[in-house]
Design a protein around this nucleic acid. Structure first.
Length: 255
DNA sequence: GCGACAG
DNA sequence: ATCTTGTCGC
């Protein structure tokens, strides 16, 4: 009776504000415009040319429909936290593979506004150019903000890659198998020896080489960049506190 | 038609 | 994404 697409649209909820897409078709059309506006040729800032580098992430609560977006700005040299911000909102778009940006960006844009000054580079939790329409989260955020952005994802999504060498810094091309010949869209990068690689792709205003260099600078101890770890931790913490605060003190919640 | 599918 | 304890190892 209904296919998967219809089911997803049925879960999208109330009409959205600010011209945000209300359907998957609108979102796809918007991605075509985003792709056309992306800067994929600038080398952008290299490590050492940057002071403030930020990570952004969003955590969701299924039942309440609430979300918390977090931004953590690090000193690019020392990796110390220099600023943090959170923003609470409500989900405007469901998770649909290939349309993640429409779920995450309202919160991310809002939390970036909370910062005292814009960061010089933003690291996204997901993909950039490595996307079916070359318009992943990091591309989209970069186009909307004008900030250099790149993506570091934890899983290969729809792309292919050979196993990188075992050492930190080893990498292999991330390939889109749906193009002939397969196009290089990113890199599987080993950030810790013997540990599963991360998947880096350029977004906007920064090259893949620089994105990988930043990623290695941000991973002195763990697989994932400190920016991502910081933003993920902060958003989870903030959502947990928010839920605790909304609950009645003695479990007298239902009414 | 079916499975896969960033977070 | 989220549900979840302990456990092995540097």
């Amino acid at each position: 009776m209904t296919d998967a697409v219809t089911d997803r649209e049925d879960t999208m909820g109330a009409p959205t504000a600010g011209g945000w897409p209300a359907t998957e078709a609108e979102a796809v059309a918007e991605q075509e415009r985003i792709r056309a506006a992306a800067d994929l040729s600038s080398p952008g800032p290299a490590p050492g040319e940057v002071r403030r580098i930020a990570g952004v992430d969003v955590t969701y609560d299924e039942e309440s429909d609430l979300l918390v977006a977090a931004a953590v700005v690090l000193d690019a040299d020392t990796l110390e936290v220099v600023e943090e911000a959170v923003h609470t909102g409500r989900s405007r778009f469901p998770y649909v593979p290939g349309l993640l940006a429409f779920r995450e960006l309202p919160g991310v844009l809002a939390v970036l506004e909370e910062l005292s000054a814009p960061p010089e580079v933003v690291v996204c939790d997901g993909y950039g150019y490595a996307h079916p329409r070359r318009a992943g989260l990091a591309v989209h955020l970069g186009v909307l903000t004008g900030l250099p952005c790149f993506g570091v994802a934890k899983s290969p999504f729809v792309f292919d890659h050979a196993e990188p060498g075992p050492l930190r810094g080893d990498s292999s091309p991330l390939l889109d198998p749906l193009r002939s010949p397969p196009e290089v869209v990113g890199r599987a990068l080993r950030t810790r020896p013997g540990v599963k690689p991360v998947f880096v792709s350029a977004g906007h205003g920064i090259s893949l080489d620089h994105a990988c260099a930043h990623t290695l600078r941000l991973t002195p101890r763990y697989r994932l960049p400190e920016t991502t770890r910081g933003a993920d931790g902060l958003s989870r913490r903030a959502l947990r506190e928010l839920k605790a605060g909304r609950r009645e003190p003695y479990g007298a919640a239902e009414r």
